[in-house]
């Protein structure tokens, strides 16, 4: 087997007892919790793509006070990020993290799991399966993108299946919505006490939605479901806290535009490279991670859309 960058970095970590201090110092996550309700905090990620400068800290994390500690919703992109979360959690509540929930199986949302292996890690059953099936592939890609930030990170899929409906997680009442469309299974959680909806990556705000595992019609259906909850506030997977219903509306508008644009391009006979250079309308051009995210979406979605749109030739 060809040694991957992950193996090389792993070997490096094992072989060097004391890596140079300045190199270590560069790779520190500065996580700032913000109170967004009684016993509820949010850590807001950068509305960017993975870069060496942000260390992959591009995702929103929620912490909610349970009966025996803090319930952590999503764990970030790396072992180091998970460790920073564990430290932060103990600062907010001496008892630390008592339970973990993963909204879906994308690496920025569950690669900190290994730090919390001693508490239950809950997710939808299909998310567990997808994390097992695709985790190693994601991991190779994350090591390629983030290098030393990923040092020592191992894929730990969620350990317990969570059903939809009203649930008690460490004594805190939540409504679990088993949805999908951003990936094969996307969990949204309504925190009953505060009326806060944790949308996972079904909802983005001012950051372009990502589509590597997307099913657009299914995703649009899930957005309707999120809207019908009528939550007081929504924590999107990426982007700022939303009290005005903007995240669902913007995500819906963008996905609809994306689908229409790709279908029209297929019907006009455009090639993928040509579509990637298509200028974005002003309302989407300013989103974080554009136009790169649009170009990625062309790669993810166009081959299948084109096959549907072009007539049969035999």
């Amino acid at each position: 087997m060809r040694p991957t960058r992950r193996h090389l970095l792993g070997a490096l970590a094992a072989g060097l007892a004391a890596p140079k201090a300045f190199a270590q110092a560069r790779h520190v996550y500065d996580l700032q919790p913000r109170s967004i309700g009684d016993g509820l905090w949010m850590i807001e990620g950068a509305t960017e793509h993975f870069t060496d400068a942000n260390g992959g800290a591009i995702v929103n994390i929620v912490l909610a006070r349970g009966q025996t500690g803090l319930i952590l919703i999503d764990t970030g992109p790396s072992r180091r990020y998970g460790e920073a979360l564990a430290t932060l959690a103990r600062r907010l509540d001496l008892r630390g993290v008592s339970a973990v929930v993963n909204t879906h199986h994308h690496p920025d949302h569950f690669f900190g799991n290994q730090v919390f292996a001693d508490v239950p890690i809950l997710a939808l059953g299909e998310t567990q399966a997808a994390a097992r099936a695709e985790g190693d592939g994601f991991s190779d890609n994350m090591y390629r993108l983030l290098g030393d930030w990923m040092r020592g990170t191992e894929v730990v899929p969620p350990t317990r299946a969570l059903d939809g409906g009203s649930q008690l997680i460490d004594g805190r009442r939540v409504e679990a919505l088993p949805l999908g469309g951003h990936t094969v299974a996307d969990l949204a959680l309504l925190d009953t006490a505060t009326g806060t909806l944790v949308g996972g990556d079904l909802a983005f705000l001012d950051r372009a939605p990502t589509t590597p595992s997307a099913d657009l019609p299914c995703w649009l259906g899930a957005l309707d479901a999120l809207e019908s909850v009528g939550a007081a506030q929504l924590v999107p997977g990426h982007g700022p806290l939303d009290r005005a219903g903007r995240a669902v509306a913007q995500t819906r508008a963008y996905l609809g535009w994306l689908d229409t644009t790709l279908r029209e391009a297929a019907r006009a006979g455009l090639d993928m490279v040509e579509i990637m250079q298509h200028p974005l309308p002003p309302e989407f051009a300013g989103m974080g991670a554009q136009p790169q995210e649009f170009q990625r979406s062309v790669a993810h979605l166009f081959p299948e859309i084109e096959r549907m749109e072009l007539p049969r030739g035999n």
Partner: peptide, 11 residues
């Protein structure tokens, strides 16, 4: 061997 495609004469 299934084929999809078309011509756009104008372009």
């Amino acid at each position: 061997g299934e084929i999809h495609g078309r011509l756009w004469a104008a372009s």
